[in-house]
Structures are given as structure tokens and as C-alpha cells.
Design a protein around this nucleic acid. Structure first.
Length: 377
DNA sequence: GATGCGTGGGC
DNA sequence: TGCCCAAGCAT
């Protein structure tokens, strides 16, 4: 309130020059030695940019190394089975990234002879390549003067020009792209874009930025106005929606039944325990899983409640009941959608986070037959 | 423009 | 501990 909301969209030439020189000089001395910075192979850059979407560098590095060993070239990824690609992605989250990347790489082979297209319009049409990723690949791999505005750049630029606009809005991102365009030097577009991101990651951090060691502190309007800790403005998201779900724990000897989830929605296409959403009105836990199984064409007898737990996604809060069940006509299960896996290997076949927690809970309760442990509600 | 989509780390 | 966040994109 009462703040000037108008960002500096026509910065002075001297300011632009100073930002460029200072930032590039700082980047030359301080840029991290990251595996995707070994060379400018557009495929390597591409994979890194997809993995880094909403994901921290430290988390990405081991996945990236493994992925590049498994699929060292664009062609090798294009030829791979989707199953194998998803497997390599397992644990990283946002699995549509992997499916889109796989699909896009195949398109590059088919439509562009295996060469990553260098035109903004062409590369932006590839699945999973949005404004940021297109700009990142074009500037880093091909030295094109194209903006690459991610969360870091939004924050850094907001502070540099003391902008009070909400960075969660699309319109703000577009304005910042215009500003970035004015800043990117002709000779080193990729380094400059990375320098902005690197500054955001290492110095101009969301909480308590290290202004005292910042190379561009003398050029920063927010710093000059003493409002660096108030910026950027970012509207808060909605709280996770609560939902009750039931996991079926269906055994055959040493094996446990897993199924493939629907190809759309939460954890799309991932293997996991049979899962149903409980309708709030229904009382008996597990009743709906029986309904689901019978709808799919086989009978099920419900057993004990093995445990209850809570799991938090960014947008959903799951209250989970794990129910033991006995299936009498296993042979009707379609192998396309159902697998029997060894219990000991379940956490590597299935979704490696929610289910790991569930399995731990189940084992704990099996060791304590006198009563359910870990009851949360 | 708003919403759905994962996970792990930091305070 | 319960949030907030981290190199976004598709719909």
C-alpha cells in the first residue's frame, strides 16, 4: 500500500552496462562446477533444465549423473522404453516431466533429424518446453539472446529494480522477460542468464539475502531503499485439500499386488498399491476398495486394518488407511495393470515415497500384533 | 488466470 | 513442527 508499483522498465544505459560487467565477472569467479556445465551439448542442457524445474540442484545431481549414464545421447533416450525412462526418474517427482521429455526427444529425432531446434518457435512447441526452458536451452547451448526467467531471476530482478509486482502472476514474468532482454549482452547470453540464476541461488536468496557480499549491491534499488527483505511480493497459494484414501494390502505368499494408476491425475501412470478415494460420507474404512475390486471383476475379502497414516503433498493432504485384503481369483488380474512383486522389493517398484512410508507402517504393525501403532486419527 | 502436479531441505 | 520453498509446464 502506498508503494510505487511501477517497475523500472527503461533502465539507464550505464546501469545496464554495470549490471552486465559486474555479474559476468562475478559469475566467472563464483560459478559452481555442475555436471551439466561440462560442455554445451544441447541435449545435456535440456535434460538438466527439465530436472531442475522446481527441484534443487543438490537433489538433481545424482539423478542427472545416473540419467546421463543410462541415456548418454538424445538418440539413446529416444529409443528407450518409457518404462525405463520413468524408472530412471523415480523419486524426482513431477513425472510428466519425464514422459514429456521422452516424447519431445522422439519428436526431435523424427522431425529434426536428431538436432535440437534452434528457433524459439520450434523449440517451444516441444512437449515440456515452456518459456523458461526454451530460453535456457537457446541461451546456454546456442548463445541466443533470449530471456530465461525462472523463480531466481524473478526474485533478483524484482529486488534490483525494487518492483512490488506479484511475481506469481504471469504478467509479471512477461515484464521481467522484457527487462531481461534489455540486460542480456550480445556476447555471452547463456552466461548472463546463468549468472542471474546463480546469484539468486547463492547470494540473493529468498530469506535473508547476503547483500553484504553481493557483487551488484551498489546497483540494487531494493537495497538502496532498504526493502530487500520485503521483496519480492509473492501471493500465497492455497492450503492442501484434505482427502481420505485407502490402500489395499493384497498378498499372495511372499508377493504383494501393485497396480498401475490411471494415466491422468495424481501420480499418473505410476505403480503402486491399489488405492481408492474414500467418500467422506462412507463410514467403514476399506469398503470402497472392495467396491473398486469388485467393479474390476474379482472378489475381495477385507481383513484387518494394518495402519493409518498421513501424507502431505504440496496441494493435497492424504489421510490413509491401509487395509489387508484377500483376493480369491488372482488369475483375472490383467498383467498390463497388475503386478505381483516381492514385498521386500515393493518400495523400489512402487512409488518410492508414499508407499515406503506405508510399508514401514505395515511392518511395524506386523511386529506388534497386539495393536495398531502409529494411529493418527 | 487458476489449478494440478512431487519431493526434500531449511528454519 | 508446520510451513515455505526450488532452474515450470500443461491445461
Amino acid at each position: 500500500m502506498g508503494r510505487a508499483a511501477k517497475p523500472l522498465l527503461h533502465p539507464e544505459k550505464e546501469w545496464i552496462e554495470a549490471i552486465r560487467e559486474t555479474l559476468l565477472d562475478w559469475y566467472d569467479k563464483n560459478c559452481r562446477d555442475l555436471p551439466w556445465r561440462k560442455n554445451k551439448d544441447p541435449y545435456r542442457i535440456w535434460v538438466s533444465e527439465i530436472m531442475l524445474q522446481q527441484t534443487r540442484v543438490d537433489t538433481v545431481i545424482p539423478y542427472y549423473e545416473r540419467f546421463m549414464s543410462t541415456f548418454p545421447t538424445l538418440e539413446s533416450l529416444a529409443e528407450a522404453d518409457e518404462e525405463k525412462v520413468i524408472k530412471a526418474w523415480e523419486g524426482l517427482g513431477y513425472y510428466s516431466r519425464a514422459r514429456n521429455l521422452h516424447s519431445a526427444v522422439k519428436e526431435v529425432v523424427e522431425q529434426y533429424g536428431g538436432e535440437v531446434p534452434q528457433e524459439p518457435d520450434s523449440i517451444s512447441r516441444l512437449k515440456g518446453v515452456g518459456p523458461y526452458t526454451a530460453g535456457a536451452i537457446l541461451s546456454i547451448a546456442f548463445d541466443r539472446q533470449v530471456p530465461a526467467v525462472d523463480g531466481n531471476v524473478l526474485r533478483v530482478l524484482s529486488r534490483l529494480i525494487a518492483s512490488w509486482e506479484d511475481i506469481s502472476k504471469n504478467a509479471t514474468r512477461r515484464k521481467m522477460e522484457e527487462l531481461d532482454k534489455m540486460l542480456i549482452p550480445e556476447d555471452r547470453p547463456g552466461d548472463f542468464n546463468q549468472a542471474l540464476m546463480e546469484l539468486g541461488a547463492l547470494v540473493c536468496t529468498p530469506l535473508s539475502p547476503s547483500c553484504n557480499t553481493c557483487p551488484v549491491r551498489a546497483l540494487c534499488k531494493a537495497r538502496k531503499q532498504g526493502v530487500e527483505s520485503e521483496l519480492p511480493i509473492k501471493a500465497k497459494g492455497k492450503p492442501p485439500v484434505p482427502a481420505k484414501v485407502t490402500f489395499g494390502w493384497i498378498r499372495k505368499g511372499d508377493f504383494v499386488l501393485i497396480h498401475r494408476r490411471p494415466t491422468e491425475g495424481l501420480l499418473a501412470g505410476m505403480w503402486g498399491l491399489p488405492t481408492v478415494d474414500d467418500k467422506p460420507s462412507e463410514s467403514a474404512p476399506g469398503e470402497t476398495i472392495k467396491e473398486m475390486m469388485s467393479r474390476l471383476g474379482f472378489q475381495l475379502e477385507l481383513g484387518a486394518i494394518l495402519g493409518e497414516m498421513e501424507h502431505l503433498f504440496s496441494h493435497r493432504r492424504w489421510y490413509v488407511t491401509v487395509v489387508e485384503a484377500l483376493c480369491s481369483d488372482y488369475d483375472q488380474l490383467s498383467p498390463e495393470n497388475y503386478h505381483w512383486v516381492k514385498e521386500s522389493e515393493l518400495s523400489t517398484y512402487a512409488f518410492p515415497n508414499v508407499y515406503r512410508k506405508a510399508i514401514k507402517l505395515i511392518h511395524k504393525n506386523q511386529r506388534n500384533p497386539q495393536g495398531i501403532q502409529g494411529r493418527l486419527f
